[in-house]
Simulated assay, not measured.
Amino acid sequence: MTEQGRTRALAGLIRRLRPSELRLFREHLLRLDHESRHDRFNSTISDEFVADYADRCFATGATVLGYVENGKVLAAAELHEQPQFDEPTGEIAFSVERKLQRRGVGTELFRRLLAHALSLGYTQLSVTTHPQNEGMKALARKFNARLSFRDGETVGWIALEPVTFTSHELRTALHPQPLEIAA
C-alpha cells in the first residue's frame, strides 16, 4: 500500500524483552546502519562496544522494550535508572532500524516506555542525542521534552506526572498488540 495516509498492520509486537532475549537485542544494535548507530550512541562506535553495551543493559536491570517481528528485534526503547538524582529519574534511549524509521514505531515505543516509567514511579526522564539528530529531537518534543544544548549534545528532560488511564488504555499498555504504522 503506497497511498498517503493508509496504514497496515505489522506482523510484530512491541513488548518487554526477556533476559533470555539479550542476543536478539545485541543483534538489532549490531544491524543498525552507520547513521542509525551514530544517532543512537552519539558517536561512531565499534561492534565490540555495541556487544558490551547490550550485555550491560541486561546486567544492570535496564528495561528494554522491543518491536519484535519474525523472531528479530527491529527497534528498541531502553529505560536506565539514574540513581544519582534525588528524584526518581530514568534515562531513555531509542534505536529503530532504517526500514522502520519515520513510520510511527519510535513514537509507539516512546509512548509505551513513558507508561512503563510511570508505573515504576519515575518522576522525570532524560534523553540525550547529538544536535543533528532531528528525528530524535522531534520525537522528544512530541512528548513534551524540554530540550537544551549542553557540552556538544542536545539534552531533553521530560517531567512525568501520574495519569489516570481508562481500562482500555491500561489493557493496551499491558498487552502486546499488532502495531499499525504508515505504509
Rank of each mutant, 00 (worst) to 15 (best):
M1C: 04
T2L: 13
T2V: 09
T2F: 05
Q4E: 05
R6F: 06
R6V: 09
T7A: 07
G12Q: 02
L13Y: 15
L13G: 03
I14S: 02
L17P: 06
L17Y: 07
L17D: 01
P19W: 00
E21S: 00
E21C: 01
E21F: 00
L22N: 10
R23K: 02
L24T: 02
R26H: 06
E27N: 11
E27H: 05
E27W: 07
L29Q: 12
L30E: 04
D33F: 02
R37C: 13
R37F: 13
R37Y: 09
R40T: 10
F41S: 04
N42G: 05
N42T: 15
I45W: 02
S46Y: 03
S46G: 11
S46R: 03
E48G: 06
F49R: 04
A51H: 00
D52G: 12
Y53M: 04
A54P: 05
D55T: 15
D55K: 12
R56F: 10
A59W: 03
T63C: 13
V64S: 03
V64Y: 00
V64N: 06
L65E: 04
G66H: 00
V68G: 01
E69K: 05
N70I: 01
V73F: 02
A75F: 06
A77V: 09
A77M: 13
E78P: 12
E81V: 12
P83C: 06
Q84S: 09
E87Y: 06
G90M: 03
G90Y: 01
A93P: 11
F94G: 12
F94N: 15
V96N: 09
E97R: 08
K99L: 08
R103Y: 08
V105R: 07
L109G: 10
L109N: 12
R111A: 15
L113K: 15
H116G: 08
H116W: 15
S119H: 12
L120W: 07
G121D: 05
L125F: 11
S126D: 11
T128P: 10
H130P: 00
P131L: 08
Q132A: 14
G135Q: 14
L139H: 11
L139Q: 12
A140Q: 07
R141C: 10
K142R: 15
K142S: 13
F143V: 01
F143A: 09
A145D: 08
R146G: 11
L147M: 03
D151C: 08
E153L: 12
V155K: 08
G156F: 08
A159N: 15
L160I: 09
L160V: 11
T164P: 01
T164L: 11
F165G: 01
F165N: 13
S167Q: 08
H168G: 04
E169N: 01
L170I: 03
T172D: 11
T172L: 06
A173V: 03
A173Y: 02
L179F: 01
E180G: 06
I181H: 02
A183E: 12
